[in-house]
Deep mutational scan, measured.
Amino acid sequence: GQVHVGDTTYHFPNPEEARKFAEKAAKENNLQVTQHGNTFKVE
């Protein structure tokens, strides 16, 4: 799974890890998570 936060892309071998990371980043920054397959975008 990939997580895009601003201009930075994080790669995770496990989509579940990617999702947890995205949700945590979104919560900390008052942002939203959008999911496209195994790619998550925090914005």
Rank of each mutant, 00 (worst) to 15 (best):
G1D: 04
Q2N: 08
V3G: 01
V3H: 00
V3S: 01
V3D: 00
V5K: 04
V5E: 02
G6M: 08
G6D: 06
G6W: 10
D7Y: 09
D7T: 12
D7A: 11
D7I: 07
D7V: 07
T8W: 11
T8A: 12
T8N: 12
T8L: 14
T9Q: 07
T9A: 06
Y10G: 02
Y10T: 03
Y10N: 03
Y10R: 02
H11L: 12
H11I: 11
F12C: 12
F12L: 02
F12T: 02
F12N: 00
F12D: 01
P13Y: 08
P13H: 10
P13E: 14
N14L: 04
N14A: 04
P15R: 13
P15H: 11
P15N: 08
P15T: 14
E16A: 06
E16T: 06
E17V: 06
E17G: 04
A18M: 00
A18T: 00
A18H: 00
K20V: 12
F21Y: 07
F21D: 03
F21A: 04
F21Q: 02
F21V: 01
A22W: 01
E23Y: 13
E23G: 02
E23I: 10
K24N: 12
K24A: 14
A25W: 15
A25F: 15
A25Y: 15
A26N: 01
A26P: 01
A26Y: 02
A26G: 06
K27H: 11
K27S: 11
E28K: 10
E28D: 12
E28Q: 09
N29C: 13
N29D: 08
N30I: 04
N30Y: 06
L31M: 15
L31Q: 09
L31K: 07
L31N: 05
Q32M: 13
Q32L: 12
Q32E: 08
Q32D: 06
Q32T: 14
V33W: 10
V33H: 02
V33S: 03
V33P: 01
V33N: 01
V33F: 09
V33M: 08
V33T: 03
T34W: 08
T34Y: 12
T34L: 08
Q35S: 07
Q35V: 12
Q35K: 07
H36E: 12
H36L: 12
H36R: 06
H36W: 12
H36P: 02
G37K: 05
G37Q: 06
G37I: 04
G37C: 11
G37L: 05
G37D: 06
G37E: 08
G37N: 07
N38Q: 06
N38I: 05
N38K: 04
T39G: 06
F40L: 05
F40I: 05
K41R: 14
K41G: 04
K41A: 08
K41H: 15
K41W: 15
V42R: 00
V42E: 03
V42M: 04
E43T: 11
E43M: 10
E43N: 08
E43Y: 11
E43S: 12
E43W: 13
